[in-house]
Design a binder for these strands. Structure first.
Lengths: 249, 249
DNA sequence: TTGTTTTTAATGGTAGCACCATTTAGAATA
DNA sequence: TATTCTAAATGGTGCTACCATTAAAAACAA
């Protein structure tokens, strides 16, 4: 055979696998509006036949769409694959995976959290309603009870809810999802630390009440300063708890 | 039969499916450090036997892990499932899906983008090196060429790169991922708009040079102001392009 | 008729097999 | 020594069979 022609480059032929093709088609119909939450896809056997693929390939596609929160699979007659409304918690898993794989570090997480939470607080100061404040107040009261009862693990759950309530008050689900993904993963470390008998955050309720007062007064500067200071104090406690997540290959 | 005992509540029995169990185990070993990037899992047939499940179930698990960027599947002898390093682009898909499903709106995306990009700019002002500035400078020059040549679609690609370079200069991959996920999705709309013959952003190169000058001068106030103004001008152009993504059920 | 129980059919969940395409190592060959 | 051929391992896919679950429909009892 002759030598290869110089300068000829071939773009790599990425043999599309069946399940990829299927996922793409579903997503296209979704983006185009042909499919929307609540719709029901044909049964596996039937859809596989329509698409001209085996049930295996179709199931792999449905599985990945289910993980993505796009479809919900229900068993039984009248079951099937229903278009779902998405899973905000999916971003949590993304961040968790990236951390487990060592592609991001705890430091990057905490830094991003401090900054984005600061942004959240500013938006909350501008937008929160009295109902939001009351919800936060109730959460703090609950936290106070847990503290008094010495139930520090439950108190960690209160903190989770606190940040969720705060994020919800931004009225922006994108920001809410993002800050949630950062908070959740760090809360896991805090939970583990507390479960192991670590020293619980002192004066937590007091700090929360100060912070809420600043929110109610729409005092953005004070609120953001309190939040940032609190997060930094939490994060330094967290540092020694980080497992060996080195970023080398 | 007698009546149900009052007050008795049963937690829902979530019949764990085989693939869920498998995914969880892999992730646990990952978080514990027992598995790390580069490691190779046993072959499908063998691993299925070890786990006492069918090859189908195992493949569904591997498939979802592959989508998550955790494993990479290679064909052929010496192939198999290798632990990967994660896919930063996965967050893009999450945001895209949530938008397609109508769980988030374009408005929420643009608002989050403005605020987080503001945060990015502030970090860049504080941390960017001359190498970062030079890379941005080169990108702007390229943008200038594309503008002069009237290749506006290529210019959109330049914009993509511009924001990526900017995000990389924060030295925080978490923020980088997040802002990337927001930018990418809006870039798709911009690309479609330009491809449809829409009016390209006027004075883009000039604005970029102004902005870069502010960055080089570490003038945070001016840089953030320029960026915010630019994004808002882009986003208003974008508004009529949004498809029917209503949030009702 | 009305309420309850049983039956039945549809559907996802899983196992197992066969075969194909790809890929690499190693053997065979020039 | 270099090339070509062969073989084996592995993921990709299709197919069948069977199980567990579910809700509708039918059968039954009051």
């Amino acid at each position: 055979m002759g030598d290869a022609l110089p300068g000829l480059v071939f773009t790599p032929i990425h043999t599309r696998r069946a399940f990829e093709e299927i996922c793409q088609r579903i997503r296209e119909q979704l983006a185009a509006g042909a499919l929307k939450p609540g719709d029901k896809l044909p049964a596996e056997r039937e859809l596989a036949q329509q698409l001209g693929v085996g049930r295996n390939a179709l199931r792999e596609a449905l599985r990945s769409l289910e993980i993505a929160g796009i479809v919900r699979l229900q068993k039984g007659v009248k079951g099937g694959a229903f278009i779902d409304e998405g899973d905000p918690g999916r971003m949590d898993q993304v961040v968790q995976d990236m951390l487990s794989l060592g592609s991001i570090s705890i430091d990057e997480l905490t830094e991003a959290r401090v900054h984005i939470q600061d942004l959240v607080v500013r938006l909350v100061c501008a937008r929160a309603t009295n109902a939001d404040f009351d919800a936060l107040e109730a959460n703090i009261s609950h936290t106070e009870q847990m503290t008094a009862a010495g139930q520090f693990l439950d108190r960690v759950e209160c903190s989770r809810e606190f940040y969720s309530l705060l994020a919800a008050a931004t009225r922006n689900q994108v920001l809410s999802m993002m800050v949630h993904s950062l908070t959740e993963i760090l809360m896991k470390f805090i939970y583990a630390r507390v479960a192991a008998g670590g020293t619980p955050q002192p004066r937590l309720v007091e700090k929360r009440r100060d912070f809420l007062a600043a929110l109610r007064a729409r005092d953005t500067v004070r609120a953001t300063r309190l939040m940032t200071a609190h997060l930094k104090s939490v994060h330094v406690l967290l540092k020694p708890a980080v497992p060996s997540t080195r970023k080398s290959t």
